[in-house]
Every structure is written in structure tokens, then in C-alpha cells.
Design a protein around this nucleic acid. Structure first.
Lengths: 337, 337
DNA sequence: CTGAAAGCGCTAACAC
DNA sequence: GTGTTAGCGCTTTCAG
């Protein structure tokens, strides 16, 4: 059994009261230098650490924040998490990471878990399956500080931080057009996700701008964001089996890009000779790929940092915050031919 | 301010005592069906959740386990984490993930953070920098349940779970030999890491087995496991600049493999024509790479699961455990030419 | 069957 | 300057 020393242990060992010890440790002014020294040295010696649960109970905050993402294996999220940690650690907060694996049920459970009083605030990116956000709304209404990033809900009024998805999608699609493609398909995640909506909008805008008609057959949604390979495979096959086969695909996500590349490779379809690709991806190994995939990169680290700063501001604010920011950060397009 | 309802809130609202409410909620036998129903319905209505900090304080356990890995972006670790979560969630435990980024200082801080009483046990994979394990030893001596996986220390007596690194390294190296290579280099992580030692041993054994002399110039250590690209680049360049240039490299880790491939690509050195590669990697995109990289895959998910089962057994054991297991799981070699 | 009270480890009035 | 005490939210004797 792991039984760390407590204030009382120090107090009895030193013949003092717990409050004196507590004050000495926290360096209150009204404590004699001698006692302070005595206590500090003894605490150091036995490696005393205050019990965080007792502290949380008392102070009514845990100095920890919860993070909800779909998958840490996704490079966008692992980079964002690094950004989150960089700020949180510097400000003395713990970071508790949970994954939804794009499941709405899992998301509800994780949020539930993190709530109660075990975290002081939440950084959330919605799962692909989520289209009912009542579990979040309720928690938010009851006062849980919350900041959304990347995949954000419409009707919760709080800070949100997103990449400029529309602009990124526009640039990627336009790049395909400028490369000579005209029959550009769009492979994307579930339809209700904010990122899907915005990227679709950018895609359509680029086509419109170049007087290319939007072909509904060219737009394929994967409700689980490519979590299941079959899902992606089927979508890609449907595109390839169209009588008027696309000459390019603009892909809205990392996992989808990988799934798509795998299908093309399996079918031995040459990229970019037979089909050209561009996609949203924060992977750091794209340039090692056999097939070129131009990619829209999101400033993941920076987004994580900013989201965390915003959250800590909410958490530590003395007064209820009513002005919320909707921060949009630019993406950058990396071209590979 | 987020102020969730407490037992007392329910009690006063219903004109009962807190102890009655507590019992009703936990379905004790000595409570009238009527009261129970009343309480349960009200609790449901206001979405009551017990305060986990109060619970932890009382029960002297938090129902959460801490995980220490170097990087969640590493596929081996993200898969292991999925295995860890699968068991932990099923048994009602939280999982708190922390990253060391291969830094010893960060590892110490994370362990410190997780300790005290905020987690019931620890799943640890050492950082590349770590060669002093006193921070862990001390904690372990004071009774913190601990299970090591992947990168394990020598002299802490507890459950350990590793891949059969020596065997995996042997097979990979032998594969290179059978492909006709004779001048096989070894690019690996920091020298004190258990995985480095074991993989080096397998590498040497394979060479010996085929009567190839071990050339010390062919063995390059990267103290930070490829965390810094310059480190890997320098090591690879040193290998390539040898007068007797190697015709193959056996690479001991994921990040190192990527770093190495990037250097080769930059220098326009053809794989496998000019040099053949094999490495430890759990990446799921290797077959999309331009250059073939045969890989030793570790059963990461299974390792995470097993480690968690072992840890929960330690945590929940009524009596001090003195028999410890040293579980070694086989790897598998995936060949790409 | 239900209530009162103690205690988990800590801090913060309030004594003295 | 230091000790005493109450209380954070919960469970658990112990009374009744």
C-alpha cells in the first residue's frame, strides 16, 4: 500500500500543529524563521507532497484540464496536444488526455468522466459521429469552462479556435485546378462536422471561381472520418467507378488521405499520372510517400497553445466571461509533385 | 463557477440526511424501496455525480492510473495506449497520459505529478535520456504499484513487459544478410536503454551467426532517440562517409527510421539499390513509403493490455505481491522489397 | 430503516 | 508565532 506522508505526520514528528506546518510550507509571513526552516528541511527529507485530492476538495479546483480528441495517433492532434501541454505545464496545470475514436458514446463517457469536479476546464474537439451536443451544452450551462478547437459546435457560446478551413480547402482545390485538373472529387468526413462543412465550402468556392460545375457524385462522406478502412475504401471505389472518373481528389483529412492512398496503391493507380491528390494533413512523413500528396497543414501546435490560453483565462477569470472569441488561424499549403 | 450538486443538496432538497442519500445511491440493502426510488430519481434529474476528489480522499485511491511514455505521436505508443485504455476503462479506471519527449527532467516532473495520491499506479516506459532511476525506485519502495513496458529498468523489482527485442533484431538483421548484404550498420537510440541493448545484442548475434565480423564503426547511437533531426542526420552521414560504406542499415526505432529515410532521400541515395533498410517500426504507413523499409512490428496493443492487467492486479491485490513476471512477447517481421 | 458524527488531508478563520 | 477548530464531499460506524 502506497501511503505518502501527510501534514499530520510532519506535525507529530516535529511536535507542532498541522496548521503551523501548513503555514510554514506555504511560507506565510507570520511564522518564525526557525520553525519554517525546521519544517521545510524535514518535509524535504521525507519528500513530502501535499495530497492533491485534499487540495482539490478544499480549493474546489484541481489544477488540471481535460482534453477530448478523436485519436492521439492523428498528427494534427498529437501536435495540438504538445501545444496544450506547453502552456498548461508552464501554468501549473495537469493535462488529462482522452480519445473518442470518433465515437459519440465514447465522447459522452469521457466528458462525463472529466466533469464532476475532477477537471477545471475542457478542451474539446468533437467526434465525427457527434451531432447531438446536449451533453456538452448541459455541462457548459452548469458553468464548466470549455474551449473548442478544430471541430467546433455551432450553438455553444464560448471560445472557439479553428484553422481557416475554407481558405485552406480553397487553396488546395485551386492548386488542383491550376495543375490542369477539372474533374475534382472531394473525399471528406461526416457531414455534420464543422471542418467538413467549411472544407466543402472552400472546395465549392474554388470550383465556382473557375467556372467548374459542382458534381454531387464527386462528393463522398465517410461518417467515421476514415476510422474504418472499409469506409474509405468504398468511398474511393465509388469515385473510381463513376463513368466520368475524376482526375483529382481533394481529401479533407489525414486518415482519409492514408486510406485513399492505400486503395490507389492496391489498385496500382498511378499518382499523379492517373489521378492527382491534395489533402488536409499534418503528417510529418508525407514527403517520404511514394505518391505525392499536396497538403494543407494546420498550425496544430499554435492552435493547442491558443486554446489552452483561452481556457485558462476562462478558468481563472474572477468574473463570468461573456465576450467570446472565434479565432481562425491560417493554414499553409505544401505542394508536392 | 462550476458548482456541481452534492449529496447535501439532495439531502436538503428531499428532507433526508446525507448518509441516507449516500446509502440510497449505492443501493445498500437497509434502505426502504420508496426512499431509494425517491433519491435515485432526484439524483438522475439533477444529474448528480459524486465528487471524485472527495471519493479519492476517503477511499484513499483515485481509480486512475498514470501512463508515462516518450511521445504519443509514436505509433508504438499510441497503439499501446489504446490497449491500456481498453482494459482500464473496462475496469472503471481513468487513464492519465503524460509525455517525456525523451527528457529525463520531464520524466521526473511527470512521475512526481502523477505520484502523491493522484494515481493508484503507474505504467512507465523510460525516456531515452534516463540513466538514473532513483526517482522511480524511491516511489516504488514507498509502495507505488508500477509496471514497466517496452523500455524497462534493470534494478526495480516489479512486473515488466517487453517485446522480444533481441529476437526481432536478429530476424531483421538476418533478413538483411539473406538479402545479400554483408556490411550492415546499426542505427540505434541511447546506449543505456534496455531496448537499445537488446536490439544491439540481436544484431550482433545475427552477424556472428553468419560469420560476419562486428564493425564498431557501423554502430551509431542517438542519445535522444531521434528526437532531434540533426542527431539522426549526423549519425547517418557518419555512416555514409565511412571509407567502407555500409550496404544496409538496421534501425532500432520508428523516429530514427524516418530520420534516416529523410537523409537518404535528401542525398538522393536509392533504396534498396544503394543501401537496404530494416527497422523497428509500428507505423501504419510504411507501405506507402517510396523507399522500402522492412520492419519489426511489436504487438503494441497487446503489450498495453497486458501491462495494464498486471498493474491492476498489483493495485487491487489484498496482499503485497512478491512474485513478479518478466513477460516477453514475440515480434513479427514484415518484409518490403 | 434513518440520522448524527467522525474522519480522509488540507487550509483558513479565530483564538491566545 | 502557534494551536484549535471547522469544513470541503463523501462513506461508515454507531445510535436510535
Amino acid at each position: 500500500m502506497f501511503e505518502p506522508p501527510t501534514l499530520k505526520d510532519i506535525a507529530t514528528a516535529l511536535g507542532l500543529s498541522t496548521s503551523t506546518v501548513s503555514r510554514a510550507l506555504r511560507d506565510t509571513y507570520e511564522i518564525s524563521a526557525k520553525t519554517k526552516k525546521l519544517v521545510l528541511e524535514y518535509a524535504e527529507k521525507i519528500n513530502y507532497q501535499p495530497n492533491p485530492n485534499a487540495l482539490s476538495l478544499k480549493e474546489r479546483r484541481s489544477k488540471s484540464i481535460g482534453v477530448v480528441v478523436s485519436e492521439v495517433a492523428n498528427h494534427y492532434f498529437s501536435q495540438a496536444i504538445n501545444g496544450i501541454e506547453s502552456i498548461a505545464y508552464a501554468r501549473g496545470y495537469h493535462v488529462i488526455i482522452t480519445q473518442t475514436h470518433e465515437s459519440y458514446a465514447r465522447e459522452k463517457i469521457n466528458i462525463q468522466h472529466l466533469a464532476s469536479r475532477s477537471v477545471d476546464g475542457l478542451l474539446v474537439s468533437l467526434s465525427a459521429e457527434t451531432n447531438d451536443i446536449n451533453h456538452l451544452k448541459e455541462l457548459h450551462d452548469r458553468g464548466m469552462p470549455m474551449v473548442f478547437f478544430d471541430r467546433v459546435p455551432e450553438d455553444i457560446h464560448t471560445h472557439k479556435i479553428t484553422a481557416n478551413n475554407e481558405q485552406g480547402a480553397f487553396e488546395a482545390t485551386e492548386h488542383l485546378i491550376k495543375s490542369g485538373c477539372r474533374k475534382i472529387a472531394h473525399l471528406t468526413s461526416s457531414a455534420q462536422l464543422s471542418i467538413s462543412i467549411e472544407r466543402l465550402r472552400g472546395y465549392k468556392a474554388a470550383l465556382n471561381n473557375h467556372n467548374i460545375e459542382v458534381n454531387p457524385d464527386y462528393i463522398k462522406h465517410c461518417p467515421h472520418g476514415g476510422m474504418f478502412p472499409e469506409e474509405t475504401e468504398q468511398a474511393v471505389l465509388e469515385l473510381l467507378n463513376l463513368k466520368d472518373k475524376p482526375d483529382a481528389i481533394f481529401i479533407a483529412g489525414d486518415r482519409l488521405s492514408i486510406g485513399c492512398l492505400e486503395v490507389l496503391k492496391k489498385l496500382n493507380i498511378k499518382v499523379p499520372e492517373e489521378i492527382t491528390l491534395a489533402g488536409f494533413s499534418n503528417s510529418d512523413v508525407l514527403n517520404l510517400f511514394e505518391y505525392p500528396l499536396s497538403s494543407v497543414r494546420q498550425p496544430a501546435f499554435e492552435m493547442g497553445k491558443t486554446a489552452t490560453e483561452m481556457l485558462l483565462q476562462l478558468i481563472e477569470s474572477k468574473y463570468p466571461v461573456t465576450e467570446f472569441e472565434d479565432k481562425v488561424i491560417d493554414t499553409s499549403l505544401f505542394i508536392r509533385d
